[in-house]
Simulated assay, not measured.
Amino acid sequence: MRDDDTTPSVAAAMLGWYDIHARELPWRVSPEDRAAGVMPDPYRVWLSEIMLQQTTVAAVKDYFHRFTSRWPTVQALAAAEDGDVMGEWAGLGYYARARNLLKCARVVTTEHDGLFPSDRARLLKLPGIGPYTAAAIGAIAFDRPETVVDGNIERVMARLHDVQTPLPAAKPELTALAEAHTPAARPGDYAQSLMDLGATICTPRGPVCALCPLNSGCLAHANGTAAELPRKTPKAPKPTRHGTAYLARRADGAWLLERRPDRGLLGGMLGWPGTDWAEAAPEPAPPANADWQPIAGEVRHTFTHFHLILRIEVARLDGSEPVTRGEYLPPDTFRPSDLPTVMRKAFDLARHHPVLG
């Protein structure tokens, strides 16, 4: 910001803009309703914030609707079966979030009488809630003047102050700048206004500076550097791992599936038995002694830290073979939508193979 601009002017400009341009989101209370005294449901705020971690609003909306229709309160979610919750989460990724979601719901229900605490210190003690999520819940659900900094807000702060330090090293500086601008009045609306600005105008590519309520004081706009910010330290290339997934079906139509251990990648999710995933081709590890047939094609999937290439082998089992991994799931209870994305890709590739028909 230019020296003649003050902190209140940023908040005032953003709140005035938000009152007109706030996005309509299923977990949000509009500024008009909030001004009339309607406060957000902390459960819905918490659920949306967990779902939105490293995930887009567009991807989250349908999941949010399904979760809140099936489990409308934190107590209802706490009483849900683990497998049902993991199945509804399938496809959203970062599955540790779903495991912590259940843990948190149960702690809130049993230790806090079904009420989310409003202060940062107690929120941070809940499973799956870190500094960002605690700040977001505090500000949005309880209107506490917390400093909320997500990727959108980092970008707005970097451009507003023309911060040239690359991320992630710039995080402390950007957080301090965000804190300096956080107002005591309407901090929840203010935090959401910055999120909306970053999502709709101060976008990663092609920011629409002419429509920005902060453009008159934005140093990056003045210096012509907005499109370049925030700078980021280049990431190391992701390695590629390889594996084999084994898709088997019994004569009565049941599928052989296993639930992965709670800890680790895809923890707690249903999946196909398979080999380890390694940079060198792993040793075969079929779950039963059968006539396994490799199929044409392969599954490619990218995780946060590596790329994965899966070979698929299929077999028809008669049910008498000893099975070393997994359990049979009857066809009337098997839902491909309960599988995480990489496992569903394997199913889609293999489902029409004659052996599995």
Rank of each mutant, 00 (worst) to 15 (best):
A176V: 13
A176P: 04
D189V: 01
T182C: 05
M195W: 09
R186C: 00
P172L: 12
D196A: 02
R186A: 12
M195F: 08
T200F: 13
A180W: 01
Y190T: 02
A169Q: 15
R205M: 09
P172A: 02
A176C: 03
T200K: 10
R205S: 14
R186I: 00
L167H: 14
P204N: 11
P204G: 11
D196F: 06
G198N: 03
K171S: 13
H181T: 09
E179C: 07
A184C: 00
A178S: 08
A191F: 06
P204C: 10
Y190I: 01
L194D: 09
D196H: 08
P204R: 07
P172G: 06
A199E: 08
P187Y: 06
A170T: 09
G188Y: 00
A178H: 10
D196V: 06
D196K: 04
M195I: 13
E173F: 01
A169T: 14
L177Y: 03
H181Y: 10
T203P: 05
D189I: 00
A185R: 07
A170C: 13
L197D: 08
G188E: 00
P204M: 10
E173V: 14
R205F: 09
D196Q: 04
M195Y: 09
T200A: 10
A169M: 15
P183V: 04
L194Y: 13
M195E: 11
E173D: 08
D189W: 05
S193E: 07
K171E: 15
E179K: 11
Y190N: 00
E179P: 00
A185P: 00
L177D: 01
L174A: 08
Y190S: 00
A199S: 14
P204F: 08
P204T: 10
P168H: 14
L167Y: 12
P187L: 05
C202K: 02
L197Q: 04
G198C: 08
Q192R: 09
D196T: 04
A170D: 12
D189H: 09
A170I: 09
A191Y: 06
A185D: 12
A185V: 12
T175G: 05
H181I: 13
A176K: 15
E173Q: 15
